[in-house]
Amino acid sequence: MKKRGIGMASIFYGTGYGNGFPDVSSAVVEIHDDGSATVLTGAADCGQGSNTVLAQIAAEELGIPIEKITLISADTDCTPDAGTTAATRQTYTSGNAVKLAAAKAKKILLDFAAGVLAVNTIDGLDIKDGYVYVKTFPQKRISVAELASHARFKGNRLIGEASFTTHSTMVDPETGQGAPYYPYAFATQIAEVEVDTETGKVEVIRIVAAHDVGRAINKIAVEGQIQGGVAQGVGWALTEEVELKNGQIQNPSFTEYLIPTALDVPEVTPVIVETYEETGPYGAKGVGEPAMLPTMPAILNAIYNAVGVRITELPATPEKILKALKEKEQKNA
């Protein structure tokens, strides 16, 4: 018989290295004579989209279109260190570093522009769509390209460099108590499954995944991170197990270590909950690791809801589910 059930799980997750560990990203931003800008960042984009997100942040801060940004990342020949692409930290930590570096380069340009546009402080100036303008009199404006070349010929270098350190506190080594991370990400996922009581096979029908990511800098990328995380969570719950014997992995191939295929991953509905994180770049936190965390407990709860058995050892293979069903039957008999 096929039985359906629904389960839910919620998590909170400390982003960044945490526990007082040095958590530093650096970045360099330079504005060029043609109104374009280069961003140098050590952040390695392994597909999660940090190149895009960091370019978006630089473009927003500088007030120029994203097409004008050249971003060079993870090149030890020229990019400053930005720590690892890990701990759900690049959007937050490197995002802040890029934003600070861009703000410094922008300030040099605005200091020069104040003289050209005859304002007495730069507080009255901003940049939008590639033009520096007077906030209270927007008709008075001059293009970034024109300003940048003039500024450079006067001996200015339109370069900003910055480091950002994510705040974290070491926990008490005796008690393990404290607040090791900042900021925290939150998520709730709901899974619907169908359990075949004859074969023990679990099919995940649907997952709704709500994630507090701070402000989503790139919505499609956030959705992709959530859907990809859920897929890994499905594998964690149902199929993936590293079998070790005397320190040797017994199943080092995709034939024996089963990761989900397109047929195993359900339709995932991401729900992006946009809080505004005061310390994040434009309010952003992170999404990478939290995406997979609630999936497994939500699926196990859904299995319990469907057939009344608690699976306490991963993965929840058909064998384990059949065994648990049998034990339940014997107990009830």
Binding site: G47, Q48, I220, E223, G224, I226, Q227, G228, G229, V230, A231, Q232, F254, I259, T261, A262, L263, V265, E267, V268
Partner: peptide, 20 residues
């Protein structure tokens, strides 16, 4: 039908939803 057609191609990042 799309999922069946790409089921021989593993992806670890996207969760396949956006590929479909």
């Amino acid at each position: 039908e799309i999922k069946v057609a790409i089921s021989g191609n593993l992806c670890r990042c996207t969760g396949y939803n956006k590929i479909v």
